[in-house]
Amino acid sequence: MPMYGDLGNKLVQHAKRTQNLTHLPPYQAELVRAVAREVRDLDKDVASLLDPFQGSFDPSTDQATACTLLVNHLSMRRNKRCLLAYHRTRTDKLEELVWNGYDVLDLSAQKTRGANSMTAGADGGTSSLSPQEEDYVRQYGDLLAAYKGQWTDIDLTGSLEPPRDLFIDVRVLKDAGEIQTEYGAINLTKNSQFYVRQGDVERLIAQGYLQKLG
């Protein structure tokens, strides 16, 4: 027989695991719903326990009921904490992806398509984000873009490594097409090597098209 808080605990374990992963595991919609349901049931229990007392409940005369109330009260709050922790861990992860310049929605959509083609669409929506999270990512992306827009010359999402050299050697890992620099256009074809200005290619390094050498 599952105890109060068992489900919440599972959520926290999921959250803990998420912290150490590079990708975002699927949203535990079922578990979230179950924990929220537990909270509502507990709240109903509290209401029905208190109902006969008509607002004149005295804990010292009925200690058994008082104890039940306290346990219910704490379990509800604990569940809430678990839910908050779970969601916050995931949004933190999503924000990190947004900061790193990934198109999170595109990424999860690709994954969905990839998974579907393999399992022949046996499992409909396998996106690892909940619909609410997709909304959140979209809105956070807008927010970040707005904040970044106020610092146009800085490029806030740029590298946080202190710049040592103006020019660096890079190797092209994936075809990235042609980029424009102030010294002319460079055609980035796979396996070629270039000596370029760091500021021009930072984005491409972050996205994994180029690898910095040396």
Binding site: V32, V39, R40, D43, L84, Y136, Y140, L143
Partner: peptide, 23 residues
């Protein structure tokens, strides 16, 4: 301010709105 509003909204739409009001 905006970030907090977004987060709160996200919690609300994900689970918080099904909670009893005091919680």
């Amino acid at each position: 301010t905006r970030h907090q509003a977004l987060l709160h909204n996200h919690y609300l739409s994900s689970f918080l709105s099904s909670f009893p009001p005091v919680l």
